[in-house]
Amino acid sequence: MEDPPPTTRTQRRQQTEQRILSAARRMFGERGYERATIRAVAAAAKVDPALVMQYFGSKQELFERAARMPSVPPLEGTLEELTEELLTRIGMKLGSIPEASLATMRSMLTHPEAAERARAALDGQIAQAGAAIEAEDAELRAALMISTMLGVTIAHQLLDLTALRGVPTEKIAGLLRPSLRTLAALPPDAQG
């Protein structure tokens, strides 16, 4: 059942704002910050470009709002659990990831704010994973684990590598498991 059409001015404004944000997420996700334009976002949202500027003020502000990434549950637990959690997240990373995350990923190499946003999120995950690793070089090991996951995500979501298309996530997780276990300072024997 569809929602009833908005009746108040506030409701119409909120609906238009959400339509613009949804279009902006798609545009930034498909094109990145540099190539996405206010005109393209407006066309996709079926509004005048001036209305986009009225609502958001600038392309930068529109990007900031559109690329707000959803919160990710913290990495915690034993090393074994942490490693398995990273492998479980492969399914999310190879599936349909949130458009805001895709917008940040596509823009992070060309736009300083997107790069900082991605760096902050990844640094947080590295700190969480590093806290569980009992090795002298725990932070390095955690960074390599997270970087491996980032690389797989970029290869699948942004580059659409042929070799990753259609491969079951269980197979990818199984192949990654020994290397992640080694990085986590666990015996690399097969698990799960």
Rank of each mutant, 00 (worst) to 15 (best):
S101L: 09
A184E: 11
G130W: 09
L21N: 00
M105G: 03
Y55D: 11
D160I: 08
V52C: 06
G57E: 06
P178Q: 03
R9Y: 06
R68D: 12
T104S: 09
R68T: 14
R177H: 04
K171T: 12
R26E: 05
M149I: 14
T7R: 14
L82M: 15
L144N: 12
R25E: 07
H156S: 15
P74A: 08
E113P: 06
G124T: 10
I172W: 00
K93W: 12
A103E: 01
L79G: 12
T110Y: 03
E84V: 05
P49K: 07
G32H: 02
F28W: 01
E80P: 01
Q157R: 07
A67E: 04
I133S: 08
L144F: 12
R31M: 02
D137V: 04
Q11S: 11
P188T: 09
L87M: 06
D189M: 13
E85T: 15
L79S: 07
T8A: 13
R106T: 08
A44T: 07
M149H: 10
G192F: 09
M53I: 12
G130R: 06
A163I: 14
F56P: 05
D48K: 11
A131E: 14
H111R: 07
V167I: 14
V47T: 14
E99P: 07
A138Y: 01
K171G: 00
A23V: 01
R68C: 09
R65Y: 00
R19A: 15
I133K: 05
R9T: 09
A115V: 00
M145R: 06
E136G: 15
I126M: 04
L183D: 10
T162D: 14
R39Q: 11
R68Y: 03
K171N: 05
I90L: 14
M105D: 04
M53R: 15
F63H: 03
A135Y: 07
I126N: 03
Q157M: 05
K93S: 11
A127Q: 13
L21S: 01
Y55I: 13
R9W: 10
